Simulated scan of single mutants.
Amino acid sequence: MKHTPRKRFGQHFLTDTAVLDAIVRAIDPQPGQALVEIGPGLGALTDPLLARCERLTVIELDRDLAARLRRRTQLQVIEADVLTVDFHELSRQQGQRLRVVGNLPYNISSPIAFHLLAQVEAIVDQHFMLQKEVVERMAAAPGDKDYGRLSVMLQWRYEIENLFEVPPEAFEPPPRVDSAVVRMTPRPEPADVDVALLGELVAVAFSQRRKLLRHTLGRWLEARGFGGHFDVQRRAEEVPVAQYVALAQAVASPSTRPEKTAPEGAVRVR
């Protein structure tokens, strides 16, 4: 059956066998592992994965493609928007944590990343094909031009590896951007932090990238009566992930609340 790619689903089907082989080698699937593929499409990645792991769960929104995939007895097909899928429940059904892979729709790649971040305890690792620009932002280090909110919010919880780039001609139809494959491995002992608070803090910090943090994050901290120390004479892209996490922890700590007296020697926001 011929399938016409649907723009509303952001469908660009990977057809380059060399790229597919490289992705499968990077994933290195093993029999007995619980693999979940997001957006299997026409099955270009599904088939070589099945050859290695024997069974596979796929999440496909396109009902025509989902119907085609159901013909394969080795597949558990979930016909749904991935943003509605409960990966914790899927992990419980599988009896183990999940390995999540896929050629993600580029128009919703960041929402998918944050959806999985909220359920990361159910995941062993993630291997995704994404827009190259997005992968560069995910993996960027402090001081890089691509370092931003996405970098901080993912790196506090994952080790991010930009594995290799993929040109547009590897797809049908070709996208208008370059692509890249990324590996995301959850950190075994992540910092204990209020994720919502960290997200708010980082969003404020990067809201005006060209200004010193005293104009943005400094005012936000002062409004909260923060009594600790944080150097706001920097720009947002100069602050390492660990310092953002430590600041979020400090903001949440009773010792830095306005009704408490700052300990001797404490330095307030400057």
Score class of each variant (00 low, 15 high):
144 D>M: 14
241 V>I: 03
10 G>A: 05
193 V>P: 10
18 A>E: 13
91 S>M: 04
16 D>K: 02
174 P>L: 02
184 M>R: 00
80 A>Q: 12
33 Q>F: 13
260 K>C: 11
163 L>V: 09
111 P>G: 12
12 H>N: 14
57 T>N: 05
131 Q>N: 02
92 R>C: 07
226 F>K: 11
17 T>P: 03
131 Q>S: 00
20 L>C: 07
105 P>Y: 02
64 D>N: 04
135 V>G: 10
199 G>A: 07
213 L>Y: 08
18 A>P: 11
26 A>Y: 06
234 R>N: 00
95 G>M: 11
230 F>R: 03
52 R>W: 10
257 R>P: 01
227 G>A: 15
270 R>S: 03
225 G>V: 13
47 D>E: 06
234 R>Y: 06
156 W>Y: 15
4 T>M: 00
228 G>D: 08
44 A>D: 07
224 R>H: 15
213 L>W: 11
236 A>E: 03
5 P>A: 03
216 T>M: 09
11 Q>M: 01
18 A>G: 13
162 N>R: 15
110 S>W: 11
118 A>F: 07
246 A>E: 12
143 G>E: 11
60 E>A: 04
183 R>Y: 12
25 R>L: 06
190 P>S: 01
85 V>E: 08
125 D>K: 01
260 K>Q: 08
238 E>D: 14
29 P>E: 03
188 P>N: 05
256 T>M: 09
38 I>K: 02
220 W>G: 12
113 A>W: 02
191 A>K: 03
124 V>G: 01
250 A>Y: 12
92 R>K: 13
81 D>N: 15
40 P>N: 08
164 F>L: 05
131 Q>H: 00
194 D>T: 05
105 P>Q: 07
206 F>M: 10
111 P>E: 06
176 R>M: 09
270 R>T: 12
262 A>F: 11
40 P>C: 07
215 H>A: 14
15 T>Q: 01
23 I>T: 10
203 A>L: 03
241 V>G: 05
7 K>N: 01
159 E>H: 15
193 V>I: 12
87 F>R: 03
58 V>L: 12
158 Y>P: 13
61 L>W: 07
132 K>Q: 13
135 V>E: 02
118 A>W: 02
